[in-house]
Design a protein around this nucleic acid. Sequence first.
DNA 1: AATTGTATCGAAAACGTTTTCGATTTTTAA
DNA 2: TTAAAAATCGAAAACGTTTTCGATACAATT
Lengths: 359, 359
Amino acid sequence: MSPASPLADLTNENNKFKQMKPVTLKDIAKQLGISITTASKALKNYPDVSDKTKKIVKELAVKLNYVPNSFAIGLRKQESKTIGVIIPTMVHYFFSTVLDAIIKEAENRNYMVIILQSNEDYRTEKKQVDLLLNKGVDGILISLSNKTRDFKHLQKIMDYNIPLILFDKIAKLVNCSKVLIDDRKAAYSAVSYLINTGRKRIAHFRGDLNPQNSIDRFLGYKKALEDHGIPYDSSLVYLCNNNSDFTDGYSSAKQLLLDHGDNVDAIFTVNDMLAIGAINYFNENGIKIPDQIALFGFSNWFMASVITPSLSSVEQNAYKIGKRSSEILFEEIERKKKGEPIVYQKVIIDTELVLRNSS
Amino acid sequence: MSPASPLADLTNENNKFKQMKPVTLKDIAKQLGISITTASKALKNYPDVSDKTKKIVKELAVKLNYVPNSFAIGLRKQESKTIGVIIPTMVHYFFSTVLDAIIKEAENRNYMVIILQSNEDYRTEKKQVDLLLNKGVDGILISLSNKTRDFKHLQKIMDYNIPLILFDKIAKLVNCSKVLIDDRKAAYSAVSYLINTGRKRIAHFRGDLNPQNSIDRFLGYKKALEDHGIPYDSSLVYLCNNNSDFTDGYSSAKQLLLDHGDNVDAIFTVNDMLAIGAINYFNENGIKIPDQIALFGFSNWFMASVITPSLSSVEQNAYKIGKRSSEILFEEIERKKKGEPIVYQKVIIDTELVLRNSS
DNA sequence: AATTGTATCGAAAACGTTTTCGATTTTTAA
DNA sequence: TTAAAAATCGAAAACGTTTTCGATACAATT
């Protein structure tokens, strides 16, 4: 049996038993009897290497299935072809849709995506920013945790000159690009719709007091009432702080009826989950939707179309948010690479009312 | 105005205007008048550096907020502290829950997670494996696309000696660790439950013909019938190939009644989406659930508890699948690092029936 | 014949870290 | 006082790539 030639070994095609080592430029250079420099330049189409050399280098690179070592490139060029994303939680229709868009956009540009969850915890979020900076990501996307009220960690990203985009849950005070919807306007138009279809006593199941989204949706609700000559009644506003659980909507609906009986004819909820909880309560207790009470949700979850009766809701365009955010991020990464100045943008993604049977 | 001292510059605390450069070992060494070697060893508690030196190095490292450059470490140690995950799609309750578990486990071990979506496309999946290998990830988790029937890309991972775990959608032929549920058994017990509660004409809305999960759930359904003396009737099996759309369940339910009238008293569906589509059809047409027809879904989506009537379903334990998969992955990464032999495991995650109002 | 120009290549430094190994100093034992 | 042992340090190589700069060879121009 003849010993395997070095060439055969390097093709990674036989001898499956020993661990394979990735092919490097050195391997290619050695086999062709040229320098590493020339091999590198040949692959990158430098003008000072002959066409003949380029050809044989490229052919061998393909044959050996050469892939550049990303650590070496990262070390040398200080770029990782990787972006980082920090979101409060992954298991959520909105965020997984945003991520879907981000990952697709990244893939189109040959970038990879590292995803971290803050779990709505500020300290975790802060630590994860350090991890990403340390990792050398080329850009960062963040949807802030509800508890984040200090922005030094974001400022640090800017100080390191790493492009940063905030989406959905943003910090007004931080000077960077932002992508979000106009929560107040969207809520305003949903409640206006309810009013225009004859509702006069409209309750609101609102979210946590902290996040800006909750506040803005509440303000939109209030403004719509006032603009249409309906007095704002704070006893019609219910705080649902555990808004990831639809039982909160269920029990608030129950309480609403106890408090106001049939002196209420619609509910605008801060999200679809709460509306669905309420629908369940009304269904079980023979209260007709939308005859006795109308419902309008927010976010247009997949579920909204599935529930009976189907739920009217505000389409939040999660995919668009993710797509636009990453587009801007990659744009800033490109501009930074070229040394061009970066102007921070604030993009408002459009929303629309999706009318279904609950209203 | 006095010029800033070099030390002050290195602390990254002033002069926000120029881009900050990360602190390196060289900076620490220069400031202390020692060699880079000693600085490195001091931070790593090498025995051949004095306690005094260790102390001052560590103090300065903290003060300057030194973080080791991950490219350099990756290049030197050939480890990235990063794992890769390839899933068919992100926007899915099952997969986002699995990812949630994986990310949490990774974080506990100071690993980061790169997520890629194959979009159920084999060529994409294959390309992504190359990307991850190129990137130097320390381990890979994959749930295969439905269209994957060639496993060379997986073999390549094994050839490079990178730990690989397959979960949920696995390939029997690939020799690596696997984590999955027993679809056949789970389907068997769901259908057996229907039989034991008096159902005799049980339909099945099955999924695509390709994925093993669909096949196994169908086989479990069939076996349960046979074991209980109920003849298998192929006209009761409906193929729902677009199983990410609940309208498929809606139209199949309609067709089922056209075909069999009231000579059917239960449906076992390959997933909850189809069952919910069917529930919608029955609700709209005044067919009583579970009196006239019972329903049993699969996966125990969040939605199953929300719909009216609530849907009985098989709990698939997505979180456990993700947790166990990543545990095994990290175990294999550790063993590889220590040079210990790796025995591939096949872990079956338990499932249970969640009984609700639809059955 | 000397000069300039052009084409092609490679040596070497750099990115930041880890680790081996040899050098130096200090301490201990004889 | 000297030899051996222990403690402490740093030079240098290595990981794989990119890029600057100089070297060489040869052709074209005076």
